[in-house]
Design a protein around this nucleic acid. Sequence first.
DNA 1: GCCTATTAGTTGCAATCGTAACTATCGATT
DNA 2: AATCGATAGTTACGATTGCAACTAATAGGC
Lengths: 155, 155
Amino acid sequence: MAAEGFELNAFLPYRLNRAAEFVAVRFAAEYKARYQLTRPEWRTLAALGSSACAMTATEVGTHSAMHKTKVSRAVSALEERRWLKRSEDEGDRRLEHLELTKAGRRAYGELTDLASAYQAQLDELIGASGLQALCAGLEAIERAIDRAEERPSRT
Amino acid sequence: MAAEGFELNAFLPYRLNRAAEFVAVRFAAEYKARYQLTRPEWRTLAALGSSACAMTATEVGTHSAMHKTKVSRAVSALEERRWLKRSEDEGDRRLEHLELTKAGRRAYGELTDLASAYQAQLDELIGASGLQALCAGLEAIERAIDRAEERPSRT
DNA sequence: GCCTATTAGTTGCAATCGTAACTATCGATT
DNA sequence: AATCGATAGTTACGATTGCAACTAATAGGC
């Protein structure tokens, strides 16, 4: 175990966290100010809005890497806002299928406008070549996550 | 503002957060179990341990993208453990220079062993080409962060 | 040399989070 | 069909967080 060879700047958890926090904090300030949305709420809304069909809470959790209690509370909050509706699964009554309402989809549309604008800023800040590399790298890690998620080990 | 053209899977804050959470949660479980360290404490220890010279709390905060209150509390906790010592700046008495003690450096060494092992697992999971792309991309975003940090706008 | 604005760091407090325990349901085994 | 283990989702509660307000000190204008 390389006692001295460790480079924090090559340690993925630290680097990813730093980068993620940096970009997330600024965007969160926007939707928080304009919509009073918390981060888990936005992430849940986004997961549902970007999906063609309904999802369960567990699916939202894995898709967004959020703890299930966070998802549970975000779902309740969005439901209270009438941005989301639940429906029972016929076959398995433990499951709840989550879908955005019309108002929820409209809100999602407005937020994605904000998001697109923010993404454009990031694109400019990072530069085309860096962005391309980042995307390729993220795809690799996303594939790895999916692979790891197929077998157990919870978040 | 592209109303329909939005792809969540291309939105950096969401993707980075997902990836960062995924890799961070698993590693956090390790150092939490073995050292009763919280995430901010590990990140502070890491920032200081990887630096050749002393840092101020603010520097730790920008380096690790942590809120200053998180840093402040982590510093207190590490100080109580005698892993870190503070010293006043002669010229500017608002500043505190933070350094690891001998025990702190030893702990950092042990933690980096854990980290190296974990990084090796990640390397294998992600694959060499993906890892290379990810690093290139992260470097680009890190440069962007540094550039953005030179001018104001706080975390 | 003073006044004002700014910065470093801390802390009270309300809000948020995660752990663990819980309810309800399902599937498999016998 | 009764039992046991696993899974979906919720919740009580203690721990952690971030905002805002604070203290202490510096820097810059005048």
